[in-house]
Write a protein that binds this DNA or RNA. Sequence first.
DNA 1: CAGACCATGTGGTATGACCACAGGTTACCT
DNA 2: AGGTAACCTGTGGTCATACCACATGGTCTG
Lengths: 258, 258
Amino acid sequence: MTTTAPHTRAWQDVLAHIEQRLLDGSLLPGDHLPSERTLAADLGVGRSSVREALRVLEVLGLLRTHTGSGPESGAIIIARPSGGMSSLMRLQVAAQGFRVEDVVSTRLILETAVAGQLAEAVAGDRMPDLLPALEILDAMEVAPQPAEPPTPTEFLALDAQFHFSLAMATGNEVIAATMSGLRSSIESYSTAGVANLESWAATSARLMGEHRAIIAAIESGDPGAARASVEGHITQYYAEAGFGRPEHPFTPKGPHHG
Amino acid sequence: MTTTAPHTRAWQDVLAHIEQRLLDGSLLPGDHLPSERTLAADLGVGRSSVREALRVLEVLGLLRTHTGSGPESGAIIIARPSGGMSSLMRLQVAAQGFRVEDVVSTRLILETAVAGQLAEAVAGDRMPDLLPALEILDAMEVAPQPAEPPTPTEFLALDAQFHFSLAMATGNEVIAATMSGLRSSIESYSTAGVANLESWAATSARLMGEHRAIIAAIESGDPGAARASVEGHITQYYAEAGFGRPEHPFTPKGPHHG
DNA sequence: CAGACCATGTGGTATGACCACAGGTTACCT
DNA sequence: AGGTAACCTGTGGTCATACCACATGGTCTG
């Protein structure tokens, strides 16, 4: 649309070619891509250009590569958006393109919507599958033995899995992947924030209780309660950890990049 | 955590190095990266590996490159998440990692939240800047001259800009970028759906009226009305265009990838 | 002083040469 | 005949080199 670049770069041609093959169905998840050398010869570009395109696709979560020979080797189409989302958002936060408070705010919107949808599903007699989420809760609650240190990092990882599994329970992979990316983009802040807590033991215990409350609200089919419980759960942790979103969105926050 | 790969690939090292420099602030938006040859020498890798990492960063919207010499040349750090979001989501839809109905559903969540937040801001006397959105509406309404064809593609592009500008009005760039990605990932469906409409003239006229209604609801400070107007706006178009989301999220949708 | 010229350094690309790896095949020994 | 070791082949991963097009800035020339 820009009409400025008559001269697309070689790796973009490769990318476009693969995208086209994905769109027309000649390349499906699980399929092997031609070898790098073959692809280069077919498209009339150098192997390095092919590799640059494949690297992009790999980071975006569209393919995986294995060396060696056999059915597992080569580049295989997959579709795992979470990894790409995580890379993208993590780097954007690092480069100050995303503000942490905006990430938190967005997460809040999506998570409350997820909880609300699940509760509505229960109310509408379309019972979502909450089993994976419950299994994660069980795992969280057996891990912190009184004798052992609570290992906040592991706990937070399970917490992330719990929220992710709720999103997956809605069947909406877009939300799930986005949440996963949002989460990992501020992961370092979450773990660093543990130091700001008065008592990790108390906080983790509270979090576990809140998880059960979220599930209970969903299972009761009360969307409002489900939304509220999720909102409180997330907001309070970030507040305690010391990097909650500002009380009002889009109050002036100052420039962040030119 | 996987402990499986003791042997990170060279381009990942480059990526990690740049990410680290972003995190510690030694690389800020607007800064130049060292030249590819220098970077390769400094990190002890080949130039092609550096280029693979830079390609990833470029697609992710983290940097732009220019040939030649002078202050504009080389690789410069930027932070434009929209482009990366668009590439990621577009390709994930192409590879069947994202279902179109999930994209629509997610867009609905974010857009209604945006409208709601803006209305709440008005109600709370924190007037958001709706001027950019209004200017786009003006542009939309002068474009379709009766003498000229309505040019649906241009109209839809302006429509996308309108919704994007609403997201930007909240100040939340995460939402704005995500919405931009969602939108572009199903852009081809949107334009193709025009053919399913009974009358483009009628639909476009309705859409323009709904845009004004959305603005009015926001300016009246009524979050519920704002949310409802956005929901109706989006839902109805997709329904008319023939690829709306199913009436209920997470009803069985069939397998999409193994 | 103005304009043409070229030296320099940038990204963009292609090519060739290796390496490690993993599976399949073959040959060999028991 | 069976099992096992060797090797052959093709994969991605990496590097080095050699170009190209390009844009700037300095220099030379009129």
